[in-house]
Design a protein around this nucleic acid. Sequence first.
DNA 1: TGTTGATCATGC
DNA 2: GCATGATCAACA
Length: 222
Amino acid sequence: MPVTPPHSITELLDRAHAMAGLSLGEIAAELDVVVPEDLRRHKGWGGQLLELWLGASAGSRPEPDFPALGVELKSIPIDEQGKPLESTYICVCPLTDVSGLRWSDSVVCHKLNRVLWVPVEGSRAIPLAERRVGMPLLWQPDEQEAAVLRRDWEELMEQVALGQVERITAHQGEFLQLRPKAANRRVLTEAIGPDGLRIQTLPRGFYLRSRFTAALLSRHYL
DNA sequence: TGTTGATCATGC
DNA sequence: GCATGATCAACA
């Protein structure tokens, strides 16, 4: 029952491989964690269970789950055919002081530099406790993927910098999209407005389209 | 039926 | 409020 952070990539992968094939209920039992009825009011439960098992540093800091290893952990819900059921949240989008911000310095770039993807059966037809964990995949974007991600990011951030954040929709971006990320629609944060003045707007987050994660998974597993 | 916009829990 | 972990559910 690992709780200390892994000392190496190898150790992290060993732990992740040991999870493959287990159900969430089995893992929860090992960790003495209660399994909720469903995820409606426990949306991050699965991800946090994996964090516990793998020894990820807890907390809500804007840094990788395994700081010493530079690895970000992402659980990804998949259907019967192994295709992602949801887009993947990456991080919040800065909405002020963004002029001069470069891709290579961005949180998106850093987070996606090394990701440990852990597929989990996500069909709502399967009781939560019975959903199984799949084979983990340690991934780094290849040149083409990185180029598109960079372009998406630059286009979105340019609009943010120009005070056009409220004109951005989730339709934009080939791989990366910008969507609301908040407790509810009444939450406000500061942003740059159309006239360069500060405005209050809904916080936004960067997400990876499921089309992208689907390609990434199939490229490795197929 | 796939996506977009909205929402839920938690810690600080 | 902001950052983490995400999925829900209405609508195109």
